[in-house]
Amino acid sequence: MIEFTLWDIVRNLLLAARWTIVLSLIAFVGGASLGLLFTVLRLSGNRLLKVMIGVYVDVFQGTPLLMQLFLAYFGAAALGFNVSAWAAASVALTLFTSAFLCDIWRGCLEAVPRGQWHASRVLGMDYLQTMRHVILPQALRLSVPPTVGFSVQVVKGTALASVIGFVELTKAGTMLNNATFAPFTIFALVALIYFALCYPLSRYSRYLERRLYDAGMR
C-alpha cells in the first residue's frame, strides 16, 4: 500500500479544487447568460414566454440539484446520448443557476418602487426609455449583492457533481479517503478548502450590500 503524507493529501485536494473552480465558473457564467436571456424574455410582454419561463424557474427551484444532475447524466444516456460527467455537470449546474438568477433579478426589477415608473411616465418617457434610464440602473445595483451571494451556492452545488463521477474537490476527498482511511483529516481539509473559496464571496456580498445601503438605495 502506498503511504500518503499530509502534503500528498493537501496537494491532491488542491489539484482537484481547480475543477471545482472551473465547474463553478462554467455554471456561473453560463447560468448568468442564460438567466439574463430569460429575464429579458420575461419582460418582453409575451404571455406564453412569461408562463414558460415561470414554469422553468419553478421546476428547477422545486427539485433537488442532485436529481437534476442524475437526469442530465443518466437521463441523457437513457435517451441515447453519450454524455461525459463533465458535460452533464456543466449543463445541470448552468440550468440550475440560470433559474435562480432569473428569479433573483426579477425580484430586483420589481424592487424598484412603482413611483419611479409613474414619475418617468409623467415626464414623458416610454417603457424602453424608463427601463434604460431609470429602472435598470437601479435594479442592477440592487442585484449585485444577491448575485454574488448566490455564487456561494453554486460553488457548494458543484460538490454534488461528485456523485456522477466528476472528479472535483469532494470526489477527490472520497477517493483519498478510500486509500488512506483518514476521513476526519481529509473531509476537514475538504471543508476548509470550500470555506476558503466561499467565505471571501460572502464577505464581498455583505460589503456590497452595506455600500448599497450607504448610497441610500434602500
Binding site: P113, A119, Q138
Partner: peptide
C-alpha cells in the same frame, strides 16, 4: 407626487 419619486441614482 407625495413621495417625490426622484431618481436616486
Amino acid at each position: 407626487f407625495q413621495s417625490f419619486n426622484l431618481f436616486p441614482h
